[in-house]
């Protein structure tokens, strides 16, 4: 699914050292590998298996996803910053594709 659309919601500014919430959503079928097609053949697994969020190269979270994550994975977590910079989000697909998004933020 090359047309996976990532969406992220990050505040435009934040106070240093203060936690704020980041919400992310990406459109993806997350085919779990447990389903069968009309002929009874298993449908191969094709999911996003890893999600990472970094700020200026430092990790915020690094998550491994399994087939039990719902379609269109929604991930909400907290981050904090100590400088102006940019968040980088990466979603890694089973087929080798990597979907990316970035979001700039400044210190309040």
């Amino acid at each position: 699914m090359a047309d996976a659309k990532p969406r992220v919601k990050v505040p435009s500014s934040a106070a240093a050292g203060e936690a704020f919430t980041i919400k992310t959503l990406i459109s993806h079928d997350m085919e779990s590998g447990q389903r069968k097609d009309g002929d009874g053949n298993p449908i191969p697994r094709k999911i996003i298996n890893r999600f990472t969020c970094d700020f200026n190269g430092t990790s915020v979270i690094d998550m491994t996803l399994e087939g039990a994550i719902s379609a269109n994975p929604y991930i909400e977590f907290d981050a904090m910053i100590d400088a102006d910079g940019e968040f980088t989000f990466n979603w890694y697909d089973d087929d080798g594709s990597v979907y990316s998004a970035t979001s700039a933020i400044s210190l309040a």
Partner: peptide, 27 residues
């Protein structure tokens, strides 16, 4: 109770604002 029990694994980095994660799962 799922056919495969693993759901997710989250590692928090130095810039995590809290050790909290919210997502949606299949049961």
């Amino acid at each position: 109770g799922n056919p495969a029990p693993a759901v997710c694994n989250v590692k928090f980095g130095p810039l995590a604002g809290s050790q909290r994660l919210s997502t949606r799962i299949r049961l």
